[in-house]
Nucleic acid binder design. Sequence first.
DNA 1: CATTTCACCTGGTGGC
DNA 2: TGCCACCAGGTGAAAT
Length: 281
Amino acid sequence: MPELPEVETIARGVDQRLRGDRIVGAWFSSYPQPFKTPRARQAKGLAGRIILSVHRTGKHIVCELGSVAPANASAAIRPDSQWIVHLGMTGRLLVTTPGEPVAAHTHARLSLLTGRELRFVDARRFGRLEFRDLVRTRAFDAPGAEPLSIGPGEFAALFRGRKLAIKAALLNQSLLAGVGNIYADESLFHAGIRPRRAAGRLTRAELERLRQALRKVLQQAIRLGGSSVSDYVDANGARGFFQLEHCVYLRTGEPCRRCATPIRRILLAGRGTHFCPRCQH
DNA sequence: CATTTCACCTGGTGGC
DNA sequence: TGCCACCAGGTGAAAT
């Protein structure tokens, strides 16, 4: 479900509410798919650790965790491990009270010292949970560039010489991290570029329009708390509002907001792709 | 190596 | 009401 704006919204919400809290125990469901780190190792690693901060990188939520060293408890606590959450298509990360009924498809429950719980719910089980011990492993880093901070030159270089469709390139996480189907379609609309255009054939001016459209769309979506198309909610269970601003995504046959031409839907890279045949060239 | 296709899952919706 | 086809925010392995 979640792309950069949704993941950013959730990470901010969890950070705001859980920073400084301590994980006292962790429970995991018996389904194997969501656990990149084996359940037992994950539970053991999480228990007793303090949530120092939570942030987003690409479509991943990274919780920086620490332990209090008994010798110098007054010193600033450094992260010694990370809990990394990828939400897949339907994943949710929710801060709840312990009494809250447990939703179907709940795959992880972290109980916290303040009595609250952090729950991971994921119907389709495309999400992934990973625990990293930073003494043994490097810190997590998304492979692709951040679309909110990349500059014009670096952005253009990503697509140079590539024959695949620009939409497929936008979805490639090792090029740009965080762009998914909604924001690929929306940013191509605002840049006036057809999704099937070969990435390497776009002019410098088009690429710059695309970079700015992408940044604008992502920033506005973050301001509106993301897009709630079917079931996305933030860490507090609240829906986002950016779906009301969509110009093409899931608007097949509806009039273009700019020129009233019906929005067309095609299949590209296996994904439903929406564009205005008149505004996009 | 670059690119495309498909499998992995469950649930909602709309047609008949 | 039931059944079925199709669609859905993602990714990584296998095939080309």
